[in-house]
Nucleic acid binder design. Structure first.
Lengths: 173, 173, 173, 173
DNA sequence: TATGAATGAGTATTCATTCAT
DNA sequence: GATGAATGAATACTCATTCAT
């Protein structure tokens, strides 16, 4: 991965995440990256190829975000880390996540099973804590977390801080 | 509103909702509507004008959906109707809602205050039911409802049915 | 067929015939025709669509060229007209024929059966004139005529005039 | 001439002969040859340089094909060898000849005088055999041979076999 | 000798939009 | 109200070619 290749990807990420895939032209990407338009196609074949490359990165980040939760053995801590995780995302990763959520609407990239490992772990935690329907609780919490993340990405971290305390209290953490 | 005008709008709705605004060309709309491309511009000035016209319709539907909840006086029923509402949407309105949610990601049209009347009513209901932080509960429930709607629009009503019962039970309705 | 449509076709014919299909850009065609590049695609869908439209015209000319020969009842005259035909082509049709011969090398357009009606008529004439293998003689003459046409298209009518007399004498016409 | 140089030339020959010069990209050639695109330009300066290099080879083959005829002293044998020559071309040389004929239509390379030595020899043979207009007969036979070659290159040797016998008989060989 | 990164001009094609009828 | 011809700017993508390594 050369420096220019990197620059292309990061420029594309920023534009795709904020303007959308279709609303972003390869010309814009090239200009922002400071490279010739042709180079994009040399390295990524397609505009779609660019998105694919970004998607791989996004999936990587997603997996990395999971690991801490997956390896936690204290059920209460599992819930706590999960609830806090949207607030821990470094600002420079916001575009990654924005893209991730935008892609949910593009059927080619929509994969609801991606979150399954997280849901499974949460279900395990709720079971340990003797919740009645742990599976359902897990799904619900996961959805709430996603919802909060979307709000953070759109309105900023601060606007959602109250939620964190509210949820922590709700789950007695 | 002539018949052709109507046909243009409904074709545009279907395409915008499923392919996205940018990914839909006026040519496609004209073909689907069975009219000349020029007519679109006669009636709606430009492509954005089409979206604006649809947006008005969407807002109408949104408001109509609210009224039943707004005028309900039994707090428990307010929550019940809210939770059940995503499952009551008739199938022919799905495109309307899909467009509504897609527009959330197209900055120009995102208006988070649109849901405020619903949130206020929910907050009132939670207060009546002596919840500790009714405002917070209201926002959370509203977000969960949105999340469920998104899931319904993407995966169908059936996939989310379990949530309804779960939430109704959770809120003791 | 509007005037501009006509202009596009004639410009394309001239360029395709002299520069070749691949060597001609739609930009060149548009400029020569004095229209916007977009119009080419509105009317002919593709660059290939342009070639297809020309091909139809070429086939028409070819058929028209045959009729006089096909309806001739005197076998000697059939041969005479055939031999003279390459020299009768009006200069403004040269591009048509140049394209016709160029297309022979593009498999999509190569159709060796196109000449069959002519060959059949020649075979009939040679039979009437008691040639031993009329079918073979017909094919040979047809090939010679094609060869002479190619030479005319490349080097001009005058360069090949001697052939006409030579062939007329050879076949005792 | 290194191995890679050779591979580039043979790949270019195959592509130019079958797809055409303009329709073939240096990228395709490089890929088929298994070398980097840059190497083509190191060795042949530019795309045209490649064609020039091939042209030299084609001219060599052409010359080689002539020698047997040129040095023949029996006039009947001269005609016989000439008529049989298109059928003697080894299959692996077909691309060479295809390119040769395609170039005829690309003006820069068309050189009608290339065949003159053959025509002269044929004229000599026809004179020896007391034909009335030997020069004319020579040109005609040469053109027929070319036409047959084109047909062979496009439709295969077998499709044209009948011609050989027919011509041999016609010239009483 | 050979590579592969990089370019800038060019390619076919699409787009939203205008306008005469 | 409605059409369809026409446009010019933009689009994704390709091309032959250069150059540092």
């Amino acid at each position: 991965m050369t420096e220019k290749q990197d620059k292309i990807l990061s420029s594309a990420l920023e534009l795709f995440a904020n303007e959308g895939f279709n609303a972003t032209s390869t010309n814009q990407i090239a200009k922002k990256a400071g490279v010739s338009e042709g180079l994009i196609f040399k390295h990524f074949k397609n505009k779609k190829g660019l998105l694919d490359a970004l998607y791989v990165q996004v999936e990587g980040k997603l997996g990395a975000g999971f690991t801490q939760i997956i390896f936690e053995t204290d059920p209460k801590k599992v819930l706590k880390i999960t609830i806090e995780s949207p607030f821990m995302i470094p600002h420079e990763d916001y575009d990654f996540w924005r893209l991730q959520f935008k892609l949910k609407w593009e059927s080619d990239y929509y994969n609801p099973e991606k979150m399954q490992p997280l849901i499974d772990k949460l279900a395990w935690a709720f079971e340990e804590l003797n919740y009645e329907t742990p599976e359902m609780e897990a799904k619900l919490l996961e959805q709430m977390i996603e919802t909060i993340m979307v709000a953070i990405l759109r309105q900023g971290k601060e606007s959602q801080l109250a939620y964190k305390d509210f949820l922590l209290k709700k789950y007695e953490l």
